[in-house]
């Protein structure tokens, strides 16, 4: 079974407007792969589509992961297959505490067909311990466990909670959509360290990092960098590509694409 995420000629529309116009991209298992690109180029659209957001209509192409075309799967099935999306704009769930939400998510992952969910559920003590440890590692105050998920959280707090969820669920293929935006420099380091720790623990894991800034890539070192512009991957390279973009901006690529 192939643990690479293979995106083939993916076309996606939102409300009849084509946003992704044939994306080809492979995120290899065990690698960190950055996607950069100007505002509105389709990065979040790609992330949402990979996770199965119902508002995005796939009009063409395939996405292969673990031997399946995941475009045919429900979002929860994709999650159970090992996919994870850290949202650019996490959603608040009133009345559901961070702890209860995480427990429900973990138990959903542990559930097995034909088995009593009570049997497969994570023991309470083990869950609490794991949660406490991960929260401490990410510098999240313990009181957040009892707060309602993302309700009244600051931008930076939401991002940390996204990484907390990732650390607890231990995905095999993580997509991070601008997790660095809204983070101050200390928070950025802590979050990056969280990702690096998880990656070190699971070296077979793939990570797709969507970002605008080289700054994050100083802390989460990508093996590959791809540039998405106007719904297409227009350039692929190594970490040096990110530095080049930082220096020159996107305009030089725009000119290249236009003249090609």
């Amino acid at each position: 079974m192939n643990s690479d995420l293979v995106i083939k000629d993916l076309r996606v529309s939102v409300e009849d407007k084509e946003i992704l116009k044939g994306v080809n991209l492979t995120v290899k298992a065990g690698t960190i792969h950055a996607i950069m690109g100007p505002n509105g180029s389709g990065k979040s659209t790609l992330a949402y589509t990979l996770m199965g957001h119902p508002g995005y209509t796939v009009t063409g192409g395939e996405v292969w992961y673990q031997g399946r075309n995941i475009l045919e799967l429900e979002p929860d099935e994709r999650s159970k297959l090992g996919l994870f999306l850290a949202f650019q704009y996490p959603v608040a769930i009133p009345g559901v505490t961070v702890a209860n939400f995480l427990r429900a998510a973990m138990n959903a992952h542990r559930a097995e067909e034909g088995k009593d969910p009570k049997e497969t559920a994570i023991p309470m003590a083990q869950f609490r311990k794991q949660l406490r440890e991960q929260m401490a590692a990410l510098g999240i105050d313990e009181s957040f466990a009892r707060r309602y998920l993302n309700e009244g959280f600051s931008g930076g707090e939401k991002k940390r909670i996204e990484i907390l969820q990732m650390a607890m669920l231990e995905p095999k293929m993580a997509i991070m959509d601008e997790t660095d935006s809204g983070l101050d420099i200390d928070a950025l380091k802590i979050v990056a360290q969280g990702v690096n720790t998880l990656y070190a623990r699971h070296p077979e894991m793939g990570v797709l990092v969507i970002t605008h800034y080289q700054r994050l890539l100083n802390y989460i070192k990508p093996h590959f960098v791809s540039v998405l512009m106007d719904g297409r991957i227009v350039r692929e390279g190594g970490p040096e590509l990110a530095l080049e973009l930082e220096e020159k901006g996107y305009d030089f690529l725009r000119e290249e694409v236009a003249s090609a």
């Binding site: 929860d76 949202f87 009345g95 559901v96 998510a105 969820q165």
Partner: peptide
């Protein structure tokens, strides 16, 4: 909300349960 919860592996029905209880 539903999509967010389902993206964490929580099936639709259970997500609705959680939302209503919340």
């Amino acid at each position: 909300q539903l999509f967010y919860m389902r993206s964490r592996g929580i099936p639709r029905d259970e997500a609705i349960h959680l939302i209503v209880m919340g």
